[in-house]
Nucleic acid binder design. Structure first.
Lengths: 256, 256
DNA sequence: GTATCACTCGATACACTGTATCGCAGCCAG
DNA sequence: CTGGCTGCGATACAGTGTATCGAGTGATAC
């Protein structure tokens, strides 16, 4: 059964036959390639070539290409700083979320790998553990299922939002330099569709929306999620007690 | 400049040379293949073979494999029922979220394509339009940016959550029939890691957590997100006024 | 110092991918 | 019936991940 993970198998000793080799070197080279030209640039042949080795030599350190990708993900998880234990939970989760977003901006291929399969590498486990720790042992989250539900929701949002953001970035620079608005881009098709009048809100989005910067958008969404969790688990909480928020309607009650 | 989309180009007339062909037939065949064996099963050769055609014939209807994938996504968007206009916004967004989740369960490959690139097909546009419509023109969401922020957050959560769920499903049936808990699965590695004591919360998750069914988990997360939006945009709202929720701590104030 | 062994490297091969090229066939206009 | 055109699809090409296995190298045993 191929249930065995990479981290189960010891790494073969680094014999400098023509050139030294190790999992770290392989993963490092693969990440460098992916950072430069996307995941397509990560082929066993290219990774091996970058290390002055034949393609088949990698199979001593890796059993499958997917394992290499798992190792890459775990490596990047290791780059993400984790909050000090004891940090207030909203603050802690916000930092983790920003850490993931920043990592995905440094390594745009990351997000394609993130949700795709469970990650069980040591750094991934440490990351999950630290994320769970932000809520565990707080009275507002008595059971591990409460913790899991809240953390899982935050992570689902973070993954979805970052994926969306990266995809848009890619699309922009693929369709030629941000094009001010993507109205003109994507050809006459969009113009024609909007002209049918069947998509009035979409038209408003494209002509009226402020296209505020992505970081602010991310923070707003994250606030929504954290607010929702806080509301459920600490009903005394009110939105006024938190910082960033979009404009509230005129019926807002302001202070307490 | 290759900005042209599939939907810009008219479809060539369906000449029944050896066998009739059309974009719909191609997309249908591709979806059937993907439903059966995952996205790996969708190769131009296999799709063409399923239609008794040579591989190159598809290029009359499609310019690139990515275009085929775009068409597949748009087709599935067309399957998703949209809420009646005028539905209360939480209800409407909940239905849309469930619609996406259900579609992704019917077509497990969908989620791999969803966040990856912007979707501009007619069904996709209609879907986005309807989603925006759930919040547009409500006094709680005065600007289109408010609408966009809220809708985007819900969608980010839905995509992330569904992707996670599908990934876990895949992993389970790949590692051999759900294995009761995945403790024993994934080899001795996990056992060893947990035995180090460095991951106490993870251990609790694996031994104590209820592993409640995925649908309930999804609803809980969705409630968090919707609650957060409601709290921000309608400060008079309290969690007691909504339905499903996880166990609140003992300090819960119950009714109004 | 020599002979043996075990091992590991990587050349070669295979089945497959998406796609460019282009000869041949069929159909339609004259 | 002939000429031109169109579009199908066989063939080809550059890649991919990976199995196989001969050769060469290092270490070990005497």
């Amino acid at each position: 059964m191929s249930n065995e993970l990479v981290w189960d198998r010891p790494e073969p000793p680094s014999k400098p036959s023509p050139t030294p080799l190790s999992r770290d070197l392989i993963v490092e080279a693969a990440i460098r390639l992916a950072d430069g030209g996307g995941l397509d640039e990560v082929s066993l042949r290219k990774v091996a070539a970058a290390l002055n080795a034949g393609p088949m030599r990698l199979y001593g350190y890796i059993e499958t290409k997917d394992e290499l990708l798992d190792l890459m993900v775990d490596e990047v998880y290791g780059e993400i700083a984790l909050p000090e234990p004891g940090t207030e939970w909203r603050e802690a989760l916000t930092r983790i979320a920003h850490g993931i977003r920043a990592a995905a901006k440094r390594h745009p291929w990351l997000i394609d790998l993130l949700g795709g399969r469970p990650h069980r590498g040591p750094n991934s486990l440490a990351h999950i553990e630290a994320t769970l720790a932000t809520l565990d042992d707080r009275p507002e989250f008595p059971t591990i299922d409460d913790v899991l539900g809240a953390v899982g929701t935050v992570m689902a949002f973070v993954h979805g939002a970052v994926r969306n953001e990266i995809a848009e970035t890619r699309d922009e620079q693929a369709s030629g330099m941000t094009e001010e608005q993507w109205q003109a881009a994507s050809g006459p098709y969009m113009q024609r569709m909007l002209a049918t009048g069947r998509f009035p809100r979409l038209a408003r989005v494209m002509y009226e929306a402020e296209h505020t910067n992505a970081a602010a958008w991310f923070d707003t969404g994250l606030s929504y999620v954290l607010d929702g969790i806080a509301t459920r688990h600490n009903p005394a909480w009110t939105p006024a007690s938190s910082a960033s928020a979009p404009s509230a309607p005129s019926t807002a009650p302001a202070g307490p």
